[in-house]
Design a binder for these strands. Structure first.
Lengths: 240, 240
DNA sequence: CCAAACACGTGATCC
DNA sequence: TGGATCACGTGTTTG
């Protein structure tokens, strides 16, 4: 019964004396396929097995509760996942969960990339549109992210109008109380758009105009900006 | 079904003879706190334990592989979930997975219901708006689902203008080459909106106007209507 | 020391 | 039969 024991061995079972027996462990040495004595660190020789029984009972009950929690969550996962037939491997179920999770995540990111979702922080970006767009030699692409305000568009329009600029296309996305606008802006007048300095001046003017509009709106409601996003509604429209 | 055979019993341990001993099981009767002999159905007295050992080895190895699969999936879940700190309970992790799954699903459905996604088939719906909206005594809510056409809005506006009607609010959603528009329409003139017959006439006129606009647009592109939807971009805007 | 969490080996069960 | 999956009780570890 006493043989060597170490590295790659597997516990087979434990012996508990019928009444208050002494405890010892047996393990299976995998390479040799023999049963050997386990190297138990706590070799409580022959003690305290009236208490031990209650401890074991608590332990097993706790473990059962743990398993119940996990399996309960697995069951609810089975109901949440669309293709979750009631009889499915735990592993297969988890794989399915991973798949659906990635799919939903891909959809979300895809919906956010074509038209990004408003950020939590205010942001103004102005950049010259590369290459003439639709026969328009020069245009500015400006994006403005801020708290949702229905009347903001007309204000932006007015501010740009004062600069003799015009919005020829706008995309507006609202999301949980915030909004992101992307404007395509052109100049009403004829100008020398080859002049880099003038283009830079235009961009700066647009940025300044948007900033002033945003400042006018973002005076009262600031604390609620960090609220959690619950409702989602992304819209858009094309004006002409 | 018979999984719970030992309903109120807990197996404590199994005894395996030193070399090729006979096997027997001990269980803990939970109510009495005593160790009793387990009701083993396969009481292989003293047989075949050269093979049994190999069988056990295969069994335990298979079980280890199974655990590895499950835990592997759990690990990948830990990486997929945003708030998945590497050290998290299995149960807590699964709960988090369920939470994120429901959140994503809620987002998806909510994004589709608040502003429905365009159907694959063309559709025109006109209905009287219940209850005065924002002090407006009477209004018509019309929805139009069709192939995406940027210039459709102005055509609708013109058609309604001929009826002395006005769009006071519009929501436009585009999705994979199709679009769904919801218009809130009021009459420019003062009328007796208590007259049910007149209201019915108005609804019919709106429907007819939308139909004519839709017919004008849906002449050339019909076959591609049943294309699969890949890109998602839902937008909206409020005009004023 | 206890409580919780995990991996392990095993008996039972299903196909 | 055998392979695969599950629930169980236990040993071990961590805080």
């Amino acid at each position: 019964m006493e043989r060597e024991a170490f590295a790659s061995l597997e516990r087979i079972s434990d012996v508990i004396g019928s009444g208050y027996g002494s405890s010892s462990s047996l393990v299976l040495d995998r390479e040799r396929g023999e049963l050997v004595k386990a190297p138990s660190k706590l070799e409580h020789k022959g003690v305290c097995h009236e208490r031990s029984i209650e401890a074991l009972r608590n332990h097993s009950e706790a473990e059962r509760r743990r398993r119940a929690r996990i399996n309960s969550h697995l069951d609810t996962l089975r109901t949440v996942i669309p293709g979750a037939n009631r009889k499915m491997d735990k592993a297969a179920l988890l794989a399915e969960v991973i798949g659906h999770l990635k799919e939903l995540r891909a959809n979300a990111t895809q919906a956010c990339e074509g038209l990004m979702i408003p950020k939590d922080y205010d942001e103004i970006k102005v950049e010259e549109q590369e290459g003439g767009l639709n026969g328009i030699p020069y245009s500015i692409r400006a994006s403005l992210c801020c708290e949702y305000k229905p009347g903001l568009l007309s204000d932006v329009r007015q501010a740009l109008d004062a600069l003799h600029l015009m919005i020829i296309r706008a995309e507006i996305a609202t999301f949980g109380g915030r909004m992101k606008n992307v404007f395509l802006i052109i100049s009403c007048n004829e100008h020398n758009f080859e002049d880099a300095e003038y283009r830079h001046f235009l961009s700066g003017s647009v940025h300044q105009a948007l900033r002033s509009v945003l400042d006018r709106f973002s005076v009262s409601q600031d604390i609620l900006a960090t609220r959690k996003r619950r409702r989602i509604s992304i819209f858009s429209s094309d004006f002409l």
